[in-house]
Design a protein around this nucleic acid. Structure first.
Length: 762
DNA sequence: TCGACTCGCACCTTTGAAAAGA
DNA sequence: ATCTTTTCAAAGGTGCGAGTCG
């Protein structure tokens, strides 16, 4: 919680000039928050608040909202890392994520525009330390930093655009610099985070539609570090990331080579010293002497030997024949022509350019090692909550929806790919056993993503959807998770550990692909899992909230959930809860009752608008600061998840497709009653973060007044959003990042604002 | 003393402009 | 003259390791 109030330097420092600049020019924008914290307290809210607001019938939006699916193309690579305990380097200048998020979207309305957002939220409020070969929670988390959201450079783009290519977020950078002015996502080191993806419908250029879909891939959880702690992760990174190719065994910068260089360096130095000292002894003699040089030579000799495998795991670098395990990469149309004309697929193009077999290599390597791993793959990864601490704090992730419907695994683009999709069963149920869950009970989800994008003021747009009062935002919130991706991290006893079977299955996919297409280059992330065939992840659909009309709920979705809301298991993390949920129950819908103010984004047209125009337009747009006006998130969608979950459970039959998938699902039944989250959880409120309503910014006057809900919400209810200008000149969209401030933290008096500061990353 | 962090290094990939060729 | 392909240099992404800081 580094709200401005908490960290004045953020607001006052020069680094924030850009933010302030836009803040001044931009009227407070009101960005509704995503499903706010899954707060049990929400259950206390009147049903009317939780019920979906009446929305004008929108035939076009209905289909898309019901069927929006997101697949993590390189899920197998992520799972490989997850099995070990994914670590992400964060630096002051910003570091890219590896593996990156490579996604496939489907179910969008080709004609509608959507905005894709990436945010990263803490899974719990613990700080971690790598001890004894595993991550242990040690102490509480640092004060929360201002949330920043990475907007995909292509945003807004039509559904056809998103669905026609692989969506990559590899340009997103992570930093530990709290004063970062580059627009990078600011994270704390040694904390555990969960990336989330949001698809927000922009009904037209001027309006944010009601459709909101959030996707969480549990396997993408990671712990931030400034230096890799786990050698296994280092190995995976080196073997998977093309930029680290030089550190591979056969690379010029491998340990062997480095040692050799060091030897030469020492030799040269020694010779120089000899010359200076006129020492008659030759280098050979010196080397033989029991000196430091000799020690170095010994080290060198050892280095030349195959690296010792880590006894704790089956990972043996020498066995990693990554080159042989290429995963077929789905070729993307990354033609330069398209880039020149569109300039919107930069990330994709670049990703496509990054072809490497490393990913597949890793996969292969992992496969080979899966047999040798004595302990569950994820065991060495994220630790279970320390006994003393009782458990991890609640994950700030969007609360799992109450109902789950299995999302049929999208047919692989590569029909020839013999690899079977990974069964969702691999991951242990997180609900019942996850320590985090128990923690969650005491600490409500820290950050529910809640991007509420209320319908902006009426425009002349032809959009059928009328502006909705802030109190009755038609926006729908949909959380999707991929069942397969359920993170083992949340396992109570063996966080980050998953049944070996799970790992094997995940690994096998790439292996098969390799056999069939050994030479297929990998895109972007060598993870190779990028290939469509790799899309083994089953979509874990979070509450798919039809944005709008409750009267016309999606076929596979239950009617708008009503309180009380019971959370599925892990309080904060949607991903956690889902693992234990049968696939057929994954699809969940909940009404969006957020009274959040409207967000005005005048220039949301996908391309084209001159930057100047776009920039000019922004001033007029107003981001209302929901959090500011509403001490607690107006919308408790997340809270409703639990209820939705329950409902969905009862309505499982509604989703035929889910039933079929359910048969293969090994998710154990979830007992809601046993879920800690169902108990009123204590909000995660660092001492520094106190809620001072008086400091909250005023709501946008233009927006209909909404009555802030009673203080029923836990901390981290909502986050103001700030838009950051996209540095890429070719992009018509003047922003690339949204900055969120925690409501309970002290949001900037002026509410959310556009951060137009230049940044190197889009 | 130790853990966490920063910085510079070498190696590598990516990118785009320039040059060469068709 | 135009388009395509190739070449090359700059920019930037990696992990490593030494040094610094608290």
């Amino acid at each position: 919680m580094l709200s401005v109030e908490m960290f004045p330097s953020l607001a006052l420092g020069p680094q924030r000039i850009g933010d302030c600049f836009y803040r001044e020019r931009e009227p407070p924008a009101h960005l509704p928050l995503f499903p706010p914290t899954c707060d049990v307290a929400a259950a206390a809210l009147p049903p009317r608040l939780l019920a979906p607001p009446p929305v004008p019938s929108e035939p076009t939006s209905k289909t898309q909202k019901d069927e929006v699916k997101m697949e993590l193309e390189n899920s197998s690579l992520w799972k490989q890392f997850s099995s070990v305990g994914t670590e992400m380097i964060i630096t002051k200048k910003g570091r890219r994520m590896f593996p990156g998020l490579r996604l496939k979207l489907s179910g969008l309305n080709p004609s509608l525009r959507y905005i894709l957002l990436l945010d990263i939220v803490p899974v719990d409020n613990s700080r971690y330390r790598f001890q004894g070969g595993s991550w242990q929670a040690v102490g509480g988390a640092e004060a929360r930093l201002p949330d920043r959201v990475f907007i995909h450079p292509d945003s807004p783009a039509t559904g056809a655009h998103w669905q026609s290519r692989t969506i990559s977020f590899h340009y997103a950078k992570l930093t530990n610099n709290t004063l970062d002015a580059q627009g990078h996502i600011i994270l704390h080191s040694l904390h555990r985070y969960q990336p989330r993806l949001h698809v927000i419908e922009a009904r037209d250029v001027l309006r944010w539609g009601g459709g909101q879909h959030s996707f969480v891939f549990p396997e993408t959880q990671f712990i931030t570090v400034t230096a890799y702690q786990n050698n296994k992760i280092t190995e995976l990174k080196i073997n998977s990331n093309p930029f680290a190719k030089g550190f591979r065994e056969d690379g010029m910068n491998s340990k062997k080579q480095r040692d050799a260089r060091q030897k030469r360096k020492i030799s040269i130095l020694t010779e120089t010293l000899d010359i200076v000292n006129c020492d008659p002894c030759d280098s050979t003699e010196l080397l033989q002497q029991p000196t430091d040089t000799n020690t170095d030579l010994q080290a060198l000799a050892l280095a030349s030997l195959p690296p010792l495998s880590d006894p704790s795991c089956g990972f043996r670098p020498e066995e990693a024949s990554y080159q042989d395990t290429l995963v077929p990469e789905q070729p993307l149309d990354l033609g330069q022509a398209f880039m020149a004309s569109q300039m919107t697929d930069i990330s994709i193009t670049m990703a496509g350019g990054m072809q490497d077999t490393a990913g597949s290599e890793v996969a292969n390597n992992m496969i080979e090692r899966s047999d040798t791993m004595a302990e569950p793959t994820f065991t060495s990864g994220f630790p279970a909550a320390p006994p003393s601490s009782s458990s991890f704090p609640p994950a700030p992730l969007p609360q799992p929806s109450s109902s789950f419907s299995s999302l049929p695994v999208p047919a692989s683009s590569d029909a020839s790919d013999p690899r079977p999709s990974i069964p969702p069963i691999d991951y242990p149920s997180l609900l019942s056993s996850s320590p985090a869950l128990s923690v969650a009970a005491t600490t409500p989800s820290l950050q529910q993503t809640s991007f509420t994008f209320p319908t902006p003021p009426p425009s002349n747009s032809s959009s059928p959807q009328p502006l909705l009062p802030s109190s009755s935002s038609p926006s729908s919130n949909t959380y999707h998770t991929i069942p397969e991706t359920i993170s083992p991290h949340v396992q109570p006893d063996a966080p980050f550990s998953a049944p070996s079977s799970a790992c094997q299955s995940g690994l096998q996919v790439p292996a098969h692909s390799l056999l069939s297409q050994p030479n297929q280059p990998l895109q972007g992330e060598p993870g190779g899992n990028n290939s469509p065939s790799d899309q083994s992840t089953v979509a874990f659909i979070y509450p798919n909230v039809p944005p709008t009309n409750p009267a016309h709920p999606p076929q596979n979705q239950p009617a708008a959930p009503t309180p009380p809301c019971s959370l599925p298991a892990h309080g904060a993390s949607t991903s956690f809860a889902f693992p234990s949920v049968p696939p057929h129950m994954q699809n969940l819908s909940f009404p969006n009752v957020s009274p959040s103010p409207a967000l005005h984004l005048p220039n949301l047209t996908h391309q084209a608008q001159p930057p100047s125009l776009a920039a000019a337009a922004f001033p007029t747009s107003s981001f209302s600061h929901p959090s500011s006006s509403l001490p607690h998130p107006p919308f408790q969608a997340s809270s409703c998840l639990a209820s939705s979950f329950q409902q969905s459970a009862g309505t499982l039959p509604q989703n035929p497709s889910s039933s079929s998938s359910a048969s293969s699902s090994s998710y154990p039944p979830v007992e809601l009653g046993a879920i800690p989250q169902f108990n009123p959880a204590l909000p995660y409120r660092p001492e520094m973060v106190l809620h001072h309503p008086s400091l909250l910014p005023q709501l946008d006057p233009s927006l209909p007044s909404s009555t802030p809900p009673p203080a029923l919400y836990p901390a981290f209810p909502s986050y103001p959003l700030r838009l950051c200008q996209d540095p890429h000149p070719s992009l018509s969209i003047p922003f690339r990042h949204l900055y969120r401030q925690h409501q309970h933290g002290h949001p900037h008096p002026q509410g959310s604002y556009l951060d137009m500061g230049t940044r190197a990353v889009f």
